[in-house]
Design a protein around this nucleic acid. Structure first.
Lengths: 363, 363
DNA sequence: TTGGCAAATCAAAGCGCTTAGATATCTATT
DNA sequence: AATAGATATCTAAGCGCTTTGATTTGCCAA
């Protein structure tokens, strides 16, 4: 691992100046073909690999985009994906890992996948940084120093830290467009999604006593609750229960469900704010011996993989996760091209996916 | 997006030299507490974010690791994941994407996940670069210039390109340890895996006419074929057919299966080199109206998500994919600490997973 | 007080590249 | 053959940080 060759070495070997070496790689047409070949040959012979650090410094751009992949499952409010931190989730190597798709891929993972594919398609380097509750800010700042633009997930970064970073580089966020209104955003049609699944329960299944349940508060979830209430209202109904959102954590969600079971007056359906919530509900109901969908229907929102595999499989609203990631990259690059344009918002459609947990398919 | 503040600005504002600013961030104990606070305050006020390019240039290290996430499905030998390139795979936005887990997560995606988790756990920045058949070398070189160490998948980079890069930074590879013997490697116990699943077919299901089938050639697959033949030999049997590996592509695999069906003499079981191959086999058999596992058993190797979801679900050998990714990071960091140590090889265990396609569970 | 040592701070020299602007080399005209 | 105008190449000045070695400051013992 001897220090590698630099422009100087290549230049010397090719008998040209370092500028010509640089031009050969960055603006090949400025260089006569014969010279170019000589430089390329020298570079090849020497095993020259241009330093991105030096280039970045000289250009004032790193040439990479960043994704701050905050891991919600590392959040104290949930179990944890990391090894041995919470008993509720098996360590990753136990049974050689991820057998049930409960841990991966999640919502964020599919969005990340979209970010990656779009970056690669465009020949963009992508830095993925992972937060964890302890050193979020430090990690974030480190990433920010390495990239030309940053994509982040909702609620993963405090607004003030965000503002600081956004002063230096463009930032695009999923959802939360109300909160950080000066950033670019990718949002989905929560309204239509909740309306579709709620009306499905109402009209197809003839249910009338519905409740909304959600753990973590978020802008998306707020909108979903509102849409839920509006849909009921439009149907001349009201929520079967008071506000069960935001409960605050998976554990609190489970608690609410247990109380419901004990009370003996289950609603016809529990409309959950997210698939994650719905899985907790499903687990808790199963533990209480309640049959889904016979005794109560359950729906989610997001369309994560686990919802397909769990029994009963989860009726939900599928978000275009990959596309959301792609759109983030798009927005970032657009803004890099045109820093002064007003904040943009890409609003994407969602799709109803009916499976077993609402009573549609045979369990 | 005005050019951000630099050490100079922070130093001026805090009334110290730029060296002190740098020390404040990199070696805080060298700086008196009061000075440190002043610097931090100035940095905060100015919204200072250190430039990783400058740091990398000065230090000779970027502080990031790289993963060259070659996408096998973008390879001409397979269908493609990208939109509209091959008819065999729906465009990613069609139906809002990845409904059946056939496209994601694959083998490489789960390994990547392990790389990410381990990097984040250790506070390492991670650059994920994506190759595509057209510009592989360029992308690879670009990544190499950005990182201190690189993790790659088997057969994703020609050996000579690899050698060139390995001259500059440590490279760790999954599998293929025979081929690039001077690199660090993470391998799995192909021998035990194939032996376990083959013996399962032999002893539990009493099958005797087995064949091995695989598409793409690879070191792993070579070993699997050998292990298969040895296992049969040890049982006093021989392969039900000549070598059906490497066929070369998904299409060729399907062709072989179709011929088998037409010939009317199906073996008792088809032991596939990978899950990917097994899925193709399953599809092709289904199209030919052959029942699995009744008419013929099929097994895979890898343990990808799709194998859980497909009907019949796939009996396979599960690799510790996440752990493999984690080990790669481990090896890279170890070597960065100690460049002179001899090439290391982390060899990991696999596990038999019996599901429906071998006839174990009710289909 | 002063000398001596440790702790704190600083000055300055790069790190490897890009890119104006200057210079040299070619081409095409006259 | 001379010269304007391209074209090709080069010179040199950074880009923002780290880090060595020098210098200053602070503290304590003599």
């Amino acid at each position: 691992m001897a220090k590698g060759p630099t422009v100087y070495h290549v230049a010397e070997r090719a008998g040209v100046s370092i500028a010509t070496v640089s031009f050969t790689f960055r603006q090949p047409d400025k260089v006569k073909a014969s010279t170019r070949d000589a430089v390329l040959a020298a570079a090849e012979a020497l095993g020259y690999v241009p330093s991105a650090s030096a280039r970045g410094l000289a250009r004032g751009r790193t040439g990479a985009l960043g994704l701050f992949a905050y891991d919600y499952l590392l959040d104290p409010a949930h179990g944890r994906r990391e090894e041995g931190i919470a008993a509720s989730v098996p360590a990753p190597t136990e049974g050689l890992g991820n057998e049930d798709l409960r841990l991966f891929p999640l919502y964020v993972d599919e969005v990340q996948r979209g970010v990656e594919l779009e970056c690669w398609r465009r020949g963009q380097a992508l830095l993925v940084g992972g937060g964890n509750p302890e050193n979020n800010e430090a990690v974030l700042s480190d990433i920010a120093g390495r990239v030309d633009g940053l994509a982040i997930f909702p609620r993963s970064v405090p607004s003030e830290a965000l503002a600081r970073i956004a002063r230096r580089i463009p930032v695009v966020e999923v959802s939360e467009s109300d909160l950080n209104a000066d950033l670019d955003h990718v949002t989905v049609d929560n309204e239509s999604g909740i309306r579709a699944i709620t009306e499905h329960l109402l009209t197809v299944h003839g249910m009338t006593r519905l409740m909304f349940l959600g753990g973590m508060p978020s802008s998306d979830n707020d909108h979903r609750l509102q849409a839920f209430l509006r849909t009921l209202h439009d149907a001349g109904l009201s929520s079967a229960r008071g506000p069960n959102y935001p409960c605050g954590s998976d554990e609190r969600v489970a608690e609410v469900v247990r109380l419901l079971c004990q009370g003996g007056n289950l609603p016809d359906a529990i409309v959950c704010a997210t698939d994650q919530d719905a899985l907790v509900v499903l687990d808790t109901l199963a533990a209480a011996g309640v049959n889904v969908p016979k005794d109560v229907a359950v729906t989610g929102f997001d369309g994560i993989a686990a919802g397909r595999v769990v029994r009963p499989s989860l009726s939900t609203v599928r978000q275009p996760l990959e596309q959301m990631g792609r759109s983030m990259v798009q927005l970032l690059l657009d803004r890099l091209d045109n820093p002064e344009k007003p904040p943009a918002n890409v609003h994407l459609p969602v799709r109803l996916v009916v499976r077993e947990s609402c009573g549609c398919q045979a369990a």
